[in-house]
């Protein structure tokens, strides 16, 4: 085995071992009676409960419902966000007209718009998807805009000197140059989408991880609350690890 491989293996081991150590301490404290297991159920119990939930097919339905909403939100809003970001990054007119609107709407916590969405779209799928979409739209927009603004001036000089046609300049210079920033927008969108959808599902859905958290609170099944939190955390890590891997492939030219 080569040196870098062992190094990476060691890093991966630490990555897995460190949270498990914390869980072990938790388990010991719980069994020793130093922790109130009514509020902090034993990790082994939570794991067993999770296993049972999966076997009952109950949890997978919720996971898929949440992922589907995040996916649809991304699908609807990411491309428009990128397009507006490109326009604002490239045209001072677009910047002048849209800049103030974006500046005023961006700071609003997107979950605060949910009641309004519920009035407009009613209590259902559309409201849940829309709240994610609004969040995604802003992350795509802001990051694309930043990415375009930070393109080194020399790329545009080269385009000018070699008479690169406008459309090719957009597709072959601006887009690839801004791609790492756009991808950052995607990563943030997915992470924030998870936050938004869990919050929205607590009040406005009858399936989903957020919905499960809310019902476990209502029925006072604390262990199920923990099980849902575990699902969210693992889901978040898997999504971000996956996207990081994808980024390494697509933006390899950044030269890590």
């Amino acid at each position: 085995m080569s040196a870098p491989t062992t190094h990476r293996l060691r890093k991966a081991l630490v990555f897995v071992a460190s949270p498990f150590t914390l869980l072990a301490i938790w388990e010991i404290c719980g069994r020793a009676g130093w922790l109130d297991v009514r509020f902090f159920p034993l990790p082994t119990k939570i794991a067993a409960y999770l296993f049972w939930l999966f076997r009952e097919d109950a949890l997978i339905v919720d996971i898929l419902a949440s992922l589907r909403r995040i996916g649809l939100g991304l699908l609807i809003a990411f491309v428009p966000g990128v397009l507006v970001g490109l326009a604002m990054g490239l045209s001072s007119w677009a910047r002048m007209i849209l800049g103030p609107i974006v500046a005023l709407t961006y700071p609003i916590p997107k979950i605060a718009i949910l009641p309004l969405l519920l009035i407009i779209f009613g209590l259902g799928e559309t409201s849940n998807v829309m709240v994610v979409a609004i969040g995604v739209f802003f992350f795509a927009l802001i990051n694309t805009y930043d990415g375009v603004r930070q393109i080194p001036a020399i790329h545009f000089d080269v385009a000018r000197v070699y008479r690169v046609r406008p459309w090719r300049k957009l597709t072959h210079i601006v887009l690839p140059a801004a791609f790492p920033a756009i991808f950052t927008g995607l990563k943030l969108s997915v992470g924030y989408g998870l936050i938004l959808i869990v919050a929205a599902e607590m009040v406005a859905a009858n399936a989903g991880i957020g919905y499960r958290i809310w019902t476990s609170w209502e029925t006072y099944v604390i262990i199920e609350l923990y099980a849902s939190l575990a699902v969210i955390s693992v889901l978040g890590v898997l999504l971000s690890v996956g996207l990081e891997a994808l980024e390494r492939v697509l933006a390899h030219w950044k030269g890590a």
Binding site: P152, H155, D157, V158, V161, R163, A177, F179, W253, G255
Partner: peptide, 17 residues
């Protein structure tokens, strides 16, 4: 050939190509 070309202080190559 082209009308013009230019070499800059920095190479200005596209890093993704």
């Amino acid at each position: 050939g082209a009308e013009q070309a230019m070499v800059f202080q920095q190479h200005g190559l596209f890093p993704w190509l």
